[in-house]
């Protein structure tokens, strides 16, 4: 594998992020104004995705909530935890069954626009990931979600 960004001593590596979504993750984790060092790879070649993004964040670890949130922007991404330049844990992120207060419902008439949103995740006939609003019961392709509470 080609090395795109310098190796980490300690921190996390998030690989196989669908291209265009790395910046959402940085925003969701509030990293823009933090003191954490972040390496960003955009539009990198990928056998699995065609193009992908990649993030390396030094001296930073994710809790379970963070992992669930990131999985929304990077379903099936690979998360590696690195200590002393070695990968000590590696996992494939998966979408939670329920997503709370993160996705803004695209339905302009939905009551959740004024309140906390709640979605369940499902897949459609083409195995594409969809989210279904708990309130208005409408289903949306995850790729078509453009607004987030981040």
């Amino acid at each position: 594998m080609k090395k795109h960004i310098a190796d980490l001593e300690n921190g996390i590596n998030i690989d196989h992020i669908p291209h265009g979504n790395a910046l959402f993750i940085i925003q969701a984790l509030h990293l823009f104004n933090s003191d954490k060092q972040v390496g960003v790879g955009l539009n990198l070649p990928s056998n699995r995705l065609g193009r992908k993004d990649l993030l390396k964040i030094a001296e930073y670890y994710l809790n379970d909530n963070d992992k669930q949130m990131i999985s929304l922007f990077a379903p099936n991404a690979t998360l590696s935890v690195i200590k002393d330049y070695k990968v000590i844990e590696k996992m494939v992120l998966s979408l939670p069954k329920e997503i709370n207060n993160l996705v803004i419902c695209p339905n302009k008439r939905c009551v959740s626009k004024q309140y906390k949103s709640k979605f369940i995740t499902l897949t459609n006939r083409k195995q594409e990931i969809k989210v279904k609003c708990h309130y208005c019961e409408q289903e949306f392709l995850l790729d078509n979600i453009k607004q987030y509470n981040i």
């Binding site: 008439r109 009551v111 609003c133 019961e137």
Partner: peptide, 10 residues
């Protein structure tokens, strides 16, 4: 009855 989708679930 409410004009917004999902009001009854709320």
């Amino acid at each position: 009855r409410h004009p917004q989708d999902g009001a009854a679930r709320l």
